[in-house]
Amino acid sequence: MFNLVKKDFLLVKKYLALTVVLAFGIPLFVAWQAPGMMGFAVFLITVIFTVYIPLQSVSLAEAKYPKATALLCTAPYRRSAVVKARYVFFLIIFIFCCLAYAILSLLAPQMEMLSTMDVVITFLIFSIVFGIYIPLQYKFGFEKTKYLLMVLLFATSFLMPSIVKMFAHTNINLDIFTGLPLPVRYAALITVILIVISISLTASIKTFQAKAL
């Protein structure tokens, strides 16, 4: 499976440099343009936009060369492994974004450090957005879904911070949650994340396995 993850990286190798630039550039740019912004919001925007590039280019490459995917499926690779590798690929990019942000916040004192909770919540949002998008893409193909992703991403990156702020101001519903002890909160969030990912992964694998290549 490692090799299938490597395949995704090879397919986007032209854009990897850009991905790195974005992972470092967006936080710096936002911190410089809107110094008051919450670290969490900055990080969320960074992750969403950074992942967008490799996601689009890997999907484009697969859409351009469907026979190459067919060839891999004639090899003793499991189709499910091809799908799982895609999820791992995104996970790696997410982790990279975390690292990039962490490095920046160590170097640049004006940047707000991320709490673990921020990372986990970002990861939850990330999982939901891509967890919805990836199975849809397997189902309907790249061409039909490329605009959907853009809409999803922009909606998330612009609306999420406001939604979070709104929640923060109104304090409804969240009381029960914030009232819980920290470890329970983490456990709850991580459980939700795992459920989202596994539902999404199962849906993607089912779709891809039934696909005519």
Binding site: K7, L11, A61, A75
Partner: peptide
């Protein structure tokens, strides 16, 4: 397996 016209990722 040989698929017609080489089933490859052209950019690699």
């Amino acid at each position: 397996i040989v698929l017609d016209e080489g089933a490859f990722y052209e950019e690699l």
